[in-house]
Design a protein around this nucleic acid. Structure first.
Length: 869
RNA sequence: GCGAAAGUGGCGGAAUUGGCAGACGCACCAGACUUAGGAUCUGGCGGGGAAACCCAUGGGGGUUCGAGUCCCCCCUUUCGCACCA
């Protein structure tokens, strides 16, 4: 190296070169077959919707996943790291309206653009397994699954009140309604409409979905809690209150009531005594029930209204108030209103006659839509009773010897029954059990577990989705499309308009078909499936994306599943992640897989924000990944996304920070290039590493052992982080520290104070450590160091604890807990040696002079604290 | 209202178990090299003070030889849930 010519780090050139090389070698990122002798590792990032542009949230998500995947490759794992496209959905139809581009064309073009961006970022995906959900090769399996579920009774159709987004002009699942508004249109209120809809019986798995959460200890507690709340299990009792007098209208017992979402039809045979079934978690308080409250939409309410125009007017008013309040958004703060129905119900336990009211705080969609009101022991009933002068009765007394009369409402379950006839004196828990038995024996009630989770409404009146494979025949009714006729292909030549209703209904070639059973003329179902179906199982398809005979190969799925690490945004905590768990359980019950949960570990990364707000077009604070890559390169952009904050926290995007990372990469480049010639020479000569001198006699350290120590500490730190803590921000910082150390030692290196073999070791390892974070630069420098083969297959460095160990420590010395000085001692120094060193320190002596040392606290290897008086 | 997470320099953030608060980076200041620099290198950089020192992790108490970290009360922000009977 006679003269060093100015070397400039040119990410554009380096990255272009390697992108080309990698493209020519698709095997590089491909998983090996299940017969591989390596342990498997499935790392998955949530697949994007192909909007046409990656945003920074994607860049962050994929930078985390790619770093992990690369690390695992280097650790010798057989890694599956796939990517795909959640390609059905409304934006494609909106774009079609706006630009007159067919949805398919628009979508495929967007996919191509985003794939280019991903390749430019250097993300290591196995593109041979790419999944695109809007292609018939994929969505035919949605249809296939739908038919299998239909056979198992997990699919049903019913007319119900549904959530309707006027903006989307389609139905939404409960999970897609946020604060009474559409999840995609935050300002659009969701309306209620009556429609025939297809449902998946996710409630059949409610208990299992809940129980499974206990074992998912690799998932964030936050997500598990959200799912628990969403499933909303509650144990209680259903009890029938009899109507004091029969009503002429067609009232009856409710049998399948719970299955029905929203308003329900009045059905079932007329019973001899008409009854109102209530759900309660506190049946022990039933002697305190002083009224029965019905939801305004309850069928009994409707029956009353049919016979009482005045009541109907009042109930309609209630419903309207309720709707207005919902629209205002503050559901919890709505004042309780009600109207007396002018009728009475009979408490089955004591024959007491209590008035029936219609109340706005009783929800038709939960429980039975009717409650017994116990104002003495329920906060809400109490407020209501106060307002309307309904009797408030104490039936529970606080437990304990000096049982002070608790003020009502007393809502604790820690008490005993009073004023409850023969049940007086029982504890709440005992009374609940006893009363349930009595109800069951008497045929007027039973123990009941209720869930908040509702069945999944999957019908959408949209075009760009999977056609539901069902046929309506006048003679045979509902007929499933036979498997051999799959896929039911989405017609492509179709005019997208803004008219309501299913666009497919306006395509006669699609609608008109023949009945598979009788051969007669029939009509196809024109609803399409919710796109969350697409994303419920896509990660299984990655194990064999070309499979034309089955959704996936069960043997392969057995090998790869469960996913070892799933990474995505927390916004999918309930929607996607609960549907996926449901789908996995269904597939297991179909015998396709053995795992009961899709992913062992889940990681939810934080949002990318800028200037204190989430990046969004409306706020005008969007930073384009393309711009960043063009200015600073993919390596710097990705590394900044990891460096700026720990991955689970929100990240504040600051472009100056990207520039800083880019400068750092430049320093690495120049540093390694400077020593690359030595490395190439040493490789040829096979120079042995020197043995590190150790022992207490070597308190004076030389540059060489210092550097080696720093190196091995860095290896240990980063390796540990990949194994769990995932603080990649501090991993990057530690690499920076290592580089700083090497640069500070530059003079000693130049003067020959460092063995060339150590220099090579430093350079090689530095580049290896960098590889998961800055893959382009690492690949380039690996080659410059004269190494053969791809760095992705080079073994991850191993930290030698002996080399990482400090020989000498700086020990802080405190007096009364305040820092006074720092003394240097051998790392192995015993407590006495530390104490001696501290006490003999001049500063310590002068500070302690004239005072009495009461106590000396010595923490081996940590610190010395003198307590003086 | 209920639940969870968080609050540390001008900024993003460090500080695995209680043990030198501010790693690393940005911004800023000074210097070097330069025709120039949005390049590179060197040094400085929580506040107060001439210094010795003192004060500092949202606020107030407490435990401890020692608290950013543990306990109690309060404030603020973010997220989730919100009449679930």
């Amino acid at each position: 190296m006679a003269e060093e010519k100015e070397l400039r780090y040119d990410p554009a050139a380096i990255e272009a070169k390697w992108q080309e090389r990698w493209a020519a070698n698709p095997k590089l990122y491909a998983a090996e077959p299940a017969s591989s002798s390596k342990p498997k590792y499935y790392v998955l990032e949530m697949l994007p919707y192909p909007s046409g542009q990656l945003h920074m949230g994607h860049v962050r998500n994929y930078s985390i996943g790619d770093a992990l995947a690369r690390h695992m490759w280097m650790r010798g794992y057989n890694v599956l790291h796939p990517m795909g496209w959640d390609a059905f959905g409304l934006p494609a139809e909106n774009a079609a309206l706006k630009n007159n581009t067919p949805p398919r064309e628009w979508t495929l073009r967007n996919i191509a653009a985003m794939k280019r961006q991903m390749l430019r970022l250097g993300l290591g995906y196995d593109w041979a397994t790419e999944v695109t959900t809007c292609l018939p090769g994929y969505y035919r399996w949605n249809q296939w699954f739908f038919l299998r579920m239909y056979e198992k009774g997990l699919v049903y159709r019913k007319k119900s009140k549904v959530n309707w987004c006027p903006e989307c002009a389609t139905v939404l699942a409960n999970e897609q309604v946020v604060d009474g508004c559409c999840w995609r249109h935050e300002d659009t209120k969701v309306e209620q409409r009556d429609l025939e809809q297809w449902f998946l019986r996710i409630t059949a798995y409610a208990q299992e979905l809940l129980d499974g959460l206990e074992k998912l200890d690799g998932w964030p507690e936050k997500v598990r809690t959200m799912q628990r709340n969403w499933i909303g299990r509650s144990e209680g009792t259903e009890v029938d209150f009899f109507l004091a007098e029969n009503v002429d209208e067609g009232l009856g017992t409710r049998d399948e009531g719970r299955e029905v979402q929203g308003g329900l039809g009045i059905r079932g045979q007329r019973s001899e005594r008409q009854r109102i079934r209530v759900f309660t978690t506190r049946v022990d308080t039933i002697f305190g029930a002083t009224s029965v409250q019905l939801a305004p939409e309850h069928p009994v309410t409707e029956a009353f209204c049919a016979a009482d125009a005045e009541l109907k007017a009042k109930v309609d008013e209630l419903i309207e108030q309720q709707t207005r309040a919902r629209e205002a958004g503050d559901v919890g703060a709505i004042e309780k209103h009600g109207v007396p129905a002018g009728r009475f119900a009979i408490n089955p336990y004591n024959g007491e006659r209590v008035p029936i009211w219609v109340a706005n705080y009783v929800l038709m969609e939960y429980g039975t839509g009717a409650i017994m009101s116990v104002p003495g022991h329920d906060q809400r009933d109490f407020e209501f009773a106060k307002k309307y002068g309904i009797e408030i009765r104490r039936v529970i007394a606080a437990a304990g010897p000096e049982a002070v009369e608790q003020e009502l409402p007393f809502t604790s379950e820690d008490g005993v029954l009073v004023n409850s006839g023969e049940y007086d004196g029982l504890t709440c828990a005992a009374a609940q059990k006893k009363l349930q038995e009595v109800a069951a024996a008497g045929g007027f009630g039973e123990a009941k577990v209720t869930y908040r989770l509702k069945d999944w409404g999957v019908s959408r009146q949209r075009y760009w989705g999977t056609p539901i494979p069902m046929i309506h025949c006048e003679r045979d009714g509902l007929v499933p499309v036979p498997d051999e006729q799959l896929p039911v292909v989405l017609p492509e030549q179709i005019e997208i308009t803004q008219q309501g209703g299913s666009p497919l209904a306006r395509v006669p070639e699609f609608v008109n078909t023949t009945c598979p059973k009788c051969g007669g003329p029939a009509r196809r179902e024109t609803d399409t499936m919710d796109t969350f179906i697409d994303s419920s199982w896509y990660f299984y398809r990655y194990t064999g994306a070309q499979n034309a005979r089955a959704p996936f190969d069960s043997a392969k799925a057995r090998y790869w599943f469960p996913i070892d690490q799933y990474i995505g945004g927390v916004e999918h905590a309930i929607l996607h992640l609960i549907y996926s768990r449901f789908w996995t359980k269904v597939m297991r019950d179909l015998g396709l897989i053995e795992n009961g949960e899709p992913a062992r570990r889940l990681f939810t990364q934080g949002m990318v924000i800028k200037d204190g707000a989430k990046m969004s077009k409306s706020k005008g604070n969007v930073v384009s990944p393309d711009d960043m890559v063009a200015r600073y390169g993919a390596d710097a952009t990705r590394m900044y996304a990891l460096f700026a904050a720990p991955p689970d926290r929100d990240l504040d995007w600051q472009e100056d920070g990207v520039a800083g990372v880019s400068r750092f990469l430049g320093r690495v480049y120049r540093l390694v290039m400077k020593y690359a010639p030595i490395a190439r020479r040493v490789r040829g000569e096979n120079v042995a590493l020197p043995v590190l001198h150790s022992g207490p006699q070597n308190i004076l350290e030389d540059a060489e052992s210092k550097l080696q120590r720093k190196l091995h500490q860095t290896i240990a730190k980063i390796t540990q982080d990949f194994e769990g803590r995932w603080h990649f921000n501090t991993c990057v910082a530690s690499i920076m520290e290592l580089v700083n150390s090497i640069q500070s030692a530059d003079a000693s290196i130049a003067s020959g104070g460092v063995n060339p073999a150590v220099i090579v070791e430093l350079m090689r390892t530095l580049v290896l450590l960098l590889a998961p974070f800055a893959p382009y630069l690492a690949a380039e420098l690996w080659e410059e160091l004269g190494e053969q083969g791809d760095i992705l297959r080079a073994p991850w460095p191993v930290s030698d604890p002996e080399l990482a160990k400090e020989e000498e420590l700086e020990v802080p010395v405190q007096i009364n807990g305040k820092l006074v000085t720092v003394v240097r001692v051998a790392a192995a120094a015993a407590a006495e040696a530390m104490e001696t060193a501290a006490l003999s320190d001049e500063k310590v002596r002068s500070r302690a002079a004239g005072k009495r040392v009461v106590k000396v606290i010595v923490v081996a290897g940590k610190l010395v604290n003198l307590v003086v008086k």
